[in-house]
Design a protein around this nucleic acid. Sequence first.
DNA 1: GTTGCTGCTGACAACGTTGTCCAGAAGGCC
DNA 2: GGCCTTCTGGACAACGTTGTCAGCAGCAAC
Lengths: 331, 331
Amino acid sequence: MRDVAALAAVSLKTVSRVVNREDGVSPELRARVEEAVQLIGYRPNLTASSLRRSDRKTQAIGLLLEDVANPFSSALHRAVEDVAAARSCLVFAGSSDEDAAKEGELLRAFAHRRVDGLIVIPAGDDPSGLADERRQGRPIVFVDRRATLHDADSVTVDNRAGVARAVRHLAGFRHRRIAFLADLSSIWTATERYQGFVDGLLESQIPLDPRLVRRDVHGIGPARDAILELLHGPDPPTAIVAGQNLITIGAIRALQALRRQREVALIGFDDFVLADLLDPPVTVVAQDPGELGRVAAELLFARLEGGPGEPRHVVVETTLVERGSGEIQPG
Amino acid sequence: MRDVAALAAVSLKTVSRVVNREDGVSPELRARVEEAVQLIGYRPNLTASSLRRSDRKTQAIGLLLEDVANPFSSALHRAVEDVAAARSCLVFAGSSDEDAAKEGELLRAFAHRRVDGLIVIPAGDDPSGLADERRQGRPIVFVDRRATLHDADSVTVDNRAGVARAVRHLAGFRHRRIAFLADLSSIWTATERYQGFVDGLLESQIPLDPRLVRRDVHGIGPARDAILELLHGPDPPTAIVAGQNLITIGAIRALQALRRQREVALIGFDDFVLADLLDPPVTVVAQDPGELGRVAAELLFARLEGGPGEPRHVVVETTLVERGSGEIQPG
DNA sequence: GTTGCTGCTGACAACGTTGTCCAGAAGGCC
DNA sequence: GGCCTTCTGGACAACGTTGTCAGCAGCAAC
């Protein structure tokens, strides 16, 4: 910047004014400075700028996901990136792996770099690290899971209604013995979806049979085993609701292993690629991770521009995508 | 920091020394400062620190992907994140969508924030923006595609050998009419894979029939249409090699639509989830995006620590995963 | 000619940190 | 006691920017 000022024979401040498009610079000087900028290949230093600037904005936000490689997280990530890019803001992404320690470490790293705001899928455990951030006055938006910090903005999916809808759908096909597999109870969405299962049974006037419910099922292998056990037991289910992505995959593997995928109905929560190419194509309750990310980012930027105010909680609806596996009648 | 110094009744510099674990501070003072840090909840400001520091490191790197939501990119992203995290470095991720303009914009945004280095999947077009970065002395590692900048490090997949292997595999099952679908010729990997196809035919002593080759096929729909056309034409292929992920999906859709998925052999390039649950399970040439990312990140950090030197080009091997669709014999 | 206004420009300090350098205390030796 | 060395701690400037304010033209009005 000094070199640019010297070359254009103006002061540092004038260069700053031209670079930041402030007015009050004569067209003649402006042109001279711009030429010098081109010639030298000057790049403004945003870290120095944010240090000095009065609003102290770094034009960067932190995005804390479960795992950047997981399709749900990465679709959300992309939507956040797009909203941020429109405001020339960059995104630091990090994976917590549902681990409170990693979560804390990443939050600290974000804070050290003075990000303007945070979008967080909170790990199941204690969010004390998050409270710390809020004390520092950094806006946070929680996504996918309602946070224990009730004064922060959040965007969640209507898990409960989605699962209830799936149960009613199966009941509509005359299923009475419907099994439900839920993820770890420490995960907010897992318990919400279980509530939805209970709601759906109630609405369909089917009594809840605890033997058809498996909770704290985590990952493909355990899901597969749980389904095999249910189907081999007495009074097996005629339909299955899988409470999470990997559980759905585990269920498919179990059904294929027994060659009963055309007899036992299956509805999965959360859509996945190629669900329509399987045999039978898999009916799912689809979430819209892109919409989740988009809304979260917009809430965050509204907060950044608008300042404090009542926390907003947005709930995004789900869609039941009928593909075949959920429309199988009991044998 | 001023408050901490005041509370501990020491100078700013002493606080700085404690925070940065420099020696030459008495244990007594150190304890007093640490207590004050805790009490005040002081967070060092990394942007100010990197500004003043002599090495000028921001502890952040830029990662330019095709699309953070695409499984290949996001698996690579995760691996980069893990390597970076081990060095308490954060990752700015961005999606170019194969668009040179977006690529340039992101590179500029990275440069403005003075990232320590860049890992880039270069978009097909002109990499002039990239040369700019290099002039600024910022280390760059190219991933997945060999860059036109030959003096930069790169990590690529052995596309050519992978496809040749697939062709020989099909030839081993007595296929003589093997079709090949390639992505846009502007993408380096697409032309490499086409070369591999030619190599494979040559090695198997099968003459190249141009009517069985479709290049510049981009996305699921066009791939599906191309396959339908090939299969409806005279002298249709008995086996298909799909040169890219989405092309494989398109091919599966076409074969399923014609109910010929058990007659026509198929090998896809790049693995995908659930490939083993399809009917028939899909044989693929698997890349290891995680390995690609890990190696790229390690090259970058080696460069950051070691300074300039001969550019290194690492090539990662592929694996042929036999699942069924590639082991179908011609009818 | 003086005053007051407006429009443009530059000098200077400051953002939060660290590198450099120097001062003062403590300890050992003659 | 005087001198040298070692260790500890602080004063100060600087990193690359921007906010504040003052100065200096040029012009109109008296």
